[in-house]
Design a binder for these strands. Structure first.
Lengths: 219, 219
DNA sequence: GATTTATGAATGAAGG
DNA sequence: CCTTCATTCATAAATC
């Protein structure tokens, strides 16, 4: 069985990356075998199970005794969220919380290009519920997000024709470290990103989707 | 509901599965974009962090009160878990060959401060002859080189100049390293730890944007 | 082989 | 918008 670490290595040394044509467009993608996918899936399932058990345990334990002092410790009080006021020793740069990020990404993916002044206000209001944030932050975020998304596409496109005619042994398909490409059409069509993101949402106390049993049904 | 299996299902439904020819053989494989892969990587990292935190918490709690009721038991050493760890999450990164480095340094020393996009392309092309490289790599290299060069100068100037308390700001980078050695300490910096902390806040009522239902934008 | 250091990359913000 | 900068994060390389 190919374990995930080895798979990762393979990705590095001998990238499973190749050019594919989907819906008439050329894009660079990672390729996994069923086996690799299965391995990954199992590993995620293991994490999910462990997390569930641990959370459950924690609940039990902390219910039995009210250790107000310890109680998840610093986990509850993210300094970023808790302390909005003092900037003495901390940084002045805003950092989105994961919740905020997910919301932002979702909005971005909806393709409503330029978030108008109106929208910005709205979004900011919504995000405020999940942490310190200002309209400027939101504005900047969209600005940056779009710009970088764009640049990445160009990069990928460029790497397509760069060494078409050169002599070097560098193969076209092997671009060492092209990060995430962002073809929006695909993004919305099959939002693994969103699915994966939700995998990690522990906000729901019941954690229905973390049930290990539901994962055992295949192959 | 949205678990690993679900994701797998979606993979099957969607045309992300296609026929590829590798090494002369036809095989069916799963296809992911770089972005999806990166997202997955992050998600797994979040799981890893959550697990660590929870285990840590558990230790603290059960150390204070020895109720031998639940205990992690065998959960700690799941074979699958053990074999994989969360090392899956490592990410590759470009490293310049010595030849490339020499060339880069030489160009940098020529003082042509801003390597325009034009230049970048040129340089990249040149460096490609000596090893795997992309324009982004070159761009980043110059960015970093300049920034760090600058910082060093400032450091020297500042230390010449006096204040015993300036160090806190100037030595940011050094400090961050120190913090890393003490994972127990809470840090006011954004990291997966915080991401995990956010996600693990199960006291948060509901999150409309994260509702799986609202994710059904795709057919 | 565990820590520490060096450095490639990511990203929020400012400038134009 | 696009470019640039400053800061921070994460990891390869170096060190002990």
């Amino acid at each position: 069985m190919v374990n995930a670490m080895e798979w990762q290595k393979q990705q590095q040394q001998n990238p499973n990356q190749q050019r594919n044509v989907i819906a008439g467009e050329i894009m660079y993608v990672k390729v996994m075998t069923d086996e690799q996918l299965e391995t990954l899936r199992k590993q995620i399932a293991v994490y999910a199970t462990i997390c569930e058990k641990l959370i459950e345990m924690h609940k039990t334990l902390s219910a039995q005794q009210d250790l107000a002092g310890i109680r998840l410790g610093s986990m509850y009080c993210d300094p970023l969220m808790a302390s909005s006021g003092h900037k003495i020793t901390s940084r002045q740069r805003w950092t989105p919380t994961s919740v905020q990020l997910q919301i932002l990404e979702r909005i971005f993916d909806q393709g409503t290009g330029t978030p108008s002044k109106e929208k910005i206000k709205e979004i900011t209001a919504e995000l405020s519920k999940h942490g310190q944030i200002s309209e400027t932050n939101v504005y900047n975020w969209f600005q940056n997000r779009r710009a970088r998304s764009k640049r990445k596409q160009q990069n990928v496109a460029a790497s397509n024709n760069t060494n078409t005619n050169t002599e070097s042994e560098v193969e076209t398909e092997v671009d060492s470290k092209d990060k995430k490409t962002k073809p929006e059409e695909f993004q919305s069509q099959q939002s693994l990103a969103n699915v994966a993101a939700q995998n990690v949402c522990f906000h729901n106390p019941d954690l229905p989707y973390l049930n290990p049993e539901s994962n055992k049904s295949d192959s």
